[in-house]
Design a protein around this nucleic acid. Structure first.
Lengths: 161, 161
DNA sequence: CATGTATAGTTTAATACTGAACTTTGAGGT
DNA sequence: ACCTCAAAGTTCAGTATTAAACTATACATG
């Protein structure tokens, strides 16, 4: 019987370490690492979403704001790839932000280039550092050095995916 | 100006290493690690979702199947906590699975206990190992030892969140 | 330069998820 | 026993997201 079966439970119940040894030797770190990663992302996202709500943004909208603010003139295509959402969703998101007066489209051939409005820029300057701080606080549950290790490992993983 | 601004872009453009040094010394591993983690999770989730589609399951439904299969008699409450979804959503998910004949509710006081049907058990036996293998393959972009490191780091992080 | 093909974006229908109101059941204290 | 409060689930309305069909523009090749 595969290890998987009770992993979520094991983690929930905190007995993962014990069970890892039961089967004889440590195995399937891959899967356990994945489950942990998933949980961590859930938690951080939840905290971040709650924090962003104070600014009237959800996480996806924040991402658009941050990306466009960092790279004025981005195309929607690029945005979609960077944020891992479909182009339909990007269309919708940009609609929202435009209606709210935070970003503006400038059509250029068959692509749209995106820019922040003045108000968008103001919100950007306010929200982005705050969000960065939040993430930093959360991640600082790990000591500085381990954060760096983590970063390095994840970078390797990301690149070969 | 905070580092955050162009991190998503930096990662996208692969110049993160350079920029990390620009500001003088390595900083904000926390945030970079977070962004990487987010991206990795996106990618794995996407691959997994696609794989699961062959079985007519989305990721949430798979999670329900896996959890109930691993712990027959679970309560919906527990399920919700373990999967980080609201109880409303759990209700809905269990409805779906029940309608499809994969799980069954057994009311017990004010809680529901959940069990797999025979068919649910069959699907469980088929899908769970397959999913585990997929995750294992994806994560094995990292060598065994680094997976273990990653697992350990994430465990530490998760616990203090 | 004409035509076929690929690309960027929009639209729409279907699904997923959340938050909040509501219902029912259980538990504790008097 | 009775009352109040908390807990587990359900329902529902609103929002988010996807997938797929569609439109319009650019590009490549004969």
């Amino acid at each position: 019987m595969a290890v998987w079966f009770n992993i979520k439970l094991l983690i929930t119940m905190g007995v993962e370490r014990k069970s890892m040894r039961r089967g004889g030797g440590l195995r399937r770190h891959s899967v356990l690492a994945w489950l942990r990663m998933w949980r961590v992302v859930q938690k951080v996202e939840r905290a971040a979403a709650e924090h962003l709500r104070a600014y009237g943004l959800n996480y996806a909208q924040f991402d658009v704001l941050a990306h466009v603010g960092a790279a004025e003139g981005s195309r929607q295509k690029e945005l979609g790839e960077s944020l891992h959402v479909t182009k339909g969703n990007i269309s919708h998101l940009v609609d929202q932000m435009e209606r709210r007066g935070l970003v503006s489209r400038r059509q250029e051939g068959r692509t749209n280039r995106l820019y922040l409005t003045e108000e968008g820029r103001r919100l950007f300057e306010e929200v982005v550092p705050a969000h960065e701080d939040l993430v930093h606080r959360l991640m600082s549950a790990l000591p500085e050095e381990e954060q760096a290790q983590l970063h390095e490992l994840l970078r390797g993983l990301d690149r070969s995916l």
